Amino acid sequence: MPALNMCSVLFVGGGQREMGEEESGFVDMEWCLALPKIELHAHLNGSVRDATLLELAKDLGNKGVLVFSDVEHVIKKSDRSLAECFKLFDLIHIITTDHATVSRITKEVVEDFAAENVVYLELRTTPKTNETIGMTKSSYVEAVMKGLRAVETVEVVLSPCASTLEPEPSTSVNDASTKKKQGRIFVCLLLSIDRRETTASAMETVQLALKMRNQGVVGLDLSGNPITGDWITFLPALSCAREQGLPITLHCGEVRNPKEIKAMLEFCPERIGHACCLEDEEWKMLKSLNIPVEICLTSNVRTNSISSLHDHHFGLSKAQMFELSRGAIRHIFAQDGVKAFLNEVFDSAQTGLLWRK
């Protein structure tokens, strides 16, 4: 299972309401597993298996890079505050800084999502550099691509960015003839700008995304510790991406920051993530601009951003959860042909799911 299980659904407009007992079916795990899922807020480093992290950390401990006993409890802790999550991410950055490890965790993460019946995955990751081993942002992303090609349990299909001028066919990147493979998962990459980066570094990520927009990179993400960095630092790079037609999603409202939240909403990105700390006026602005929200149910509860699922943005019946999941297709960053295929997947699943008790 992913270490942080960053599950997300999409919410556009509407208000909050109470969830009655008859509507609590959305916590039925068997039904949730059977539901085809559109995953729009998955961090590569936030989805690494605990077992893999422990194995890699132990190996680095044996090499004297870190003290394993100091980090073991950090990895094993299941419920973390938002601040503790970023401490874990700092540890993961230390553990996953070579090409082979990046490829390995990519393979495992995609196989884990496919096992949970995710049919479309936008996987976001921050391209990293490591001069000691010759890692550049470009070679980092190639290591991610290598991991996609290594997936064994499911056919992996890449789609070009929806903003590509000439529509191009989606492409299977691994050996689809292998008998072990069951089903298909569309995987698209979002390159993330970390809030610790400089304007120049952010611009480098934008240029890399533009270069790879026909190779499975479909957009940009701004993420990282929400109390670090200043929105104005990243605005030039994000504006450049917008001018070139790259879709953008922003981590917004993870903590209270009215000035930044307002500026992000005024930028009018294609989507925002989390939106846990928006006040009424900010919600009105968001809805008036019709900006979809990636609501990260498990993440928000585990990091104590929201006290429980019942206290989240809304309560949903199974029928509403199904339509919300299907509705997310409209806001993916892939091309129209992928959207048509995904709608057929939901059409096929609808009758059985909505009649299941």
Score class of each variant (00 low, 15 high):
W231D: 02
G216M: 02
S223V: 08
A263P: 09
F267V: 01
E22M: 12
C7K: 12
H331C: 12
E131H: 12
E243Q: 13
G327S: 09
E166T: 14
S172I: 06
L316K: 06
T198I: 10
L238Y: 07
E168A: 11
A263W: 03
S8Y: 07
N304C: 13
S308P: 10
V67E: 15
L44V: 04
E294V: 06
R184D: 00
Q207R: 15
S159Q: 06
N290D: 12
V151P: 01
V74P: 06
S69T: 12
S8V: 07
K179M: 10
I232L: 13
F68S: 04
H310F: 14
A263G: 00
I261H: 07
G20P: 00
T126E: 01
L220E: 00
E111F: 02
Q16S: 14
R149S: 11
A328Q: 02
K37E: 07
D50C: 11
S317V: 06
Q16L: 03
L56T: 11
P167H: 00
T178K: 15
M203V: 11
H312Y: 12
T106C: 11
R330G: 05
E23K: 10
L33V: 04
K287H: 15
I248C: 04
L354A: 01
T228C: 07
G20Y: 08
R124E: 04
L66K: 09
K76G: 02
L278D: 08
L278V: 04
L324S: 11
T153R: 02
